[in-house]
Every structure is written in structure tokens, then in C-alpha cells.
């Protein structure tokens, strides 16, 4: 595992993706220090200011202002904080639930596998965006609710993919050998199976972060996201929609931010898959 991680860090794809994710992470953590303005501070005297380099731009608003005179750059940076919080915690929650159920289903098989498998089938038959919208209506807006909604919708993704991987690993004789040496079921799963599914788990986690960013943006766009007090990229797009002809920058910048975040996570996931997946790595050699 350590060896393949070191191998992964030598891949330019992973390094580029990590740099992009790191940039987003710094914005999210140090938003208060980086952002020139308070993201909610309204400056009604200068609304819809173009970026600083445009003819009538204002150097104090580097990327201009929105229809309420809020600084776009600051809102983007605080939006990154929202997006990253959702991406990390929602993916983590979905991963925990999905992974536990996948390992139980794949390891024990039989009736347990059947029940978990049908549960996943039924769950996945709801369109994910609609399901999360319904959940948000029921739960109410707020950052924690968004995370909960995404966890409840997306755990199935982990469960289904990981279960088939567990089935493959379980067939190896070393799993049977561990049982014969006196390992309990729990020990066998944690020490023999989990290390083998971990590369896939990491890859899925990074892909899930990209999905979580998009879902959060969708929910914020329709006003069922983190709530009006918190800056979010989806909300910025929704606000800018009405003034798209006067100020296209307001629309394009958050879209680019979402694109940047999704590309970073997808690139990371793809790069990790290529380097951590034993089968793919062997085929390439």
C-alpha cells in the first residue's frame, strides 16, 4: 500500500490533481485571511462592477461585484469552503455506510447479501437528484442537511461497486487460510479483505467528492442548499442568471469554479485508479 502510494505520487496526473485540490483546500481553510471582503457585505453603491481589468472596473473588487454589490472573489473563496466541506464530509459519510454494508454483503453472502443487494436496487431506482431534492424539502436547508442528503443518496454507489470487489477478494485462499488460523470474521474482513479493497475505496472517494460538489451546486441553485447566509457557487449562478447580459462574469466565474473542482477530483480519482489498481498497473507494464 505504501509502495503503491509512493508510485501514485510520481504520476504527473496525480500531482497536477493534488495541486488543484490543494489550492481549493487552502481557499476553503484560510477563506477568512484570503478573501478581501466579507462575502455577505453589500455595497449598494457599486453593484455589478466588472472585473478590475475591465475599463470601468474597481481595483478594490478584483473580480467585480454582484447585483447586491457583494465582492465576487470573496464569495468564490467562501463558496470553495462550502463546496469542500460538503465534498469531504458527504463523501466520507457515504463511504462509511457503503463500505460497511458492501463488506458485510460480499463477505457473508447468502441471505445477507440478498437483502443488502435488494435494498441497494430499490434505493438506486430513485433518480438521485430528485431524491436529494425531496430529502432537502423534508430536512430543511443548511450545510449539515446538504451533507446528510448526499450521504443518504450516494452510499449505494460505494456499496454496489465495492461489493463485487469484495466478492473477488473473498474467493482467494488466503481469506480461508486466515479463518483457519483462528481469525474472527471481523479480523478477517479488516486485516485481509479491506487492505485489498482500499485502492478502489480511495478512488471511489475522490470521484464521489466531484459528484458531491455538483449535487451541492444543484441544491444551492434551486435554493434548497446551504441557506442564504452562506456563500455557495450554485447560489451565485442562480443570482447571476438574471443579469447575464449586463454582467456575464458573474455567471461564468462560479461555473468555472465548479468545473475546476470537479476536474480536480475526477483527475485525482482517475490518476489514483491507474496507479493503485493492481490489475490496470500490471496491464500497463
Amino acid at each position: 500500500m505504501a509502495g503503491s502510494l509512493a508510485h501514485a505520487l510520481r504520476s504527473p496526473r496525480v500531482l497536477l490533481a493534488l495541486a488543484m485540490v490543494l489550492g481549493l483546500g487552502v481557499c476553503a481553510i484560510f477563506a477568512g485571511f484570503i478573501a478581501p471582503h466579507d462575502p455577505g457585505e453589500q455595497n449598494l453603491l457599486s453593484i455589478l462592477t466588472p472585473p478590475a481589468w475591465a475599463p470601468d472596473g474597481d481595483p478594490s473588487f478584483l473580480l467585480g461585484t454582484d447585483s447586491l454589490g457583494r465582492d465576487v472573489l470573496s464569495r468564490l473563496i467562501y463558496g470553495a469552503r462550502t463546496a469542500m466541506l460538503v465534498a469531504v464530509f458527504a463523501s466520507f459519510g457515504a463511504m462509511i455506510i457503503g463500505t460497511i454494508l458492501a463488506h458485510i454483503a460480499g463477505y457473508f453472502g447468502g441471505a445477507v447479501d440478498w437483502i443488502i443487494g435488494r435494498l441497494v436496487d430499490v434505493w438506486m431506482s430513485f433518480p438521485p437528484v430528485i431524491l436529494s431534492l425531496i430529502l432537502m424539502v423534508g430536512l430543511g436547508v443548511g450545510l449539515d442537511r446538504v451533507i446528510l442528503a448526499i450521504v443518504l443518496v450516494d452510499w449505494t454507489r460505494f456499496c454496489r461497486v465495492l461489493r463485487s470487489e469484495v466478492l473477488i477478494v473473498r474467493r482467494h485462499d488466503y481469506v480461508a487460510a486466515a479463518r483457519l488460523l483462528g481469525f474472527s470474521h471481523w479480523q478477517t474482513i479488516v486485516r485481509e479483505i479491506l487492505p485489498a479493497t482500499l485502492p478502489l475505496l480511495i478512488t471511489l472517494f475522490s470521484l464521489e467528492m466531484a459528484i458531491a460538489v455538483v449535487v451541492e451546486a444543484i441544491l444551492s441553485f434551486v435554493g434548497l442548499g446551504v441557506g442564504p447566509n452562506q456563500a455557495a457557487w450554485g447560489q451565485m449562478i442562480a443570482d447571476a442568471r438574471q443579469y447575464v447580459y449586463q454582467s456575464p462574469w458573474n455567471l461564468l466565474l462560479p461555473i468555472f469554479a465548479i468545473f475546476f473542482a470537479v476536474a480536480a477530483f475526477n483527475l485525482l480519482g482517475d490518476g489514483l485508479r491507474r496507479t493503485l489498481d493492481v490489475r490496470l498497473a500490471q496491464a500497463e507494464r
Partner: peptide
């Protein structure tokens, strides 16, 4: 059983955890 009855599997490729 674990203490007194052990099994050696046919295919060491599959019987040894590669990690």
C-alpha cells in the same frame, strides 16, 4: 482446529496475501 488441524492450499499465488 486452529491449534491442531491446519491446511496447506494448492495454489500459493492465491493462498498468500500479496500485501
Amino acid at each position: 482446529r486452529a491449534a491442531s488441524l491446519q491446511m496447506v492450499f494448492q495454489d500459493p499465488q492465491s493462498a498468500l496475501n500479496p500485501r
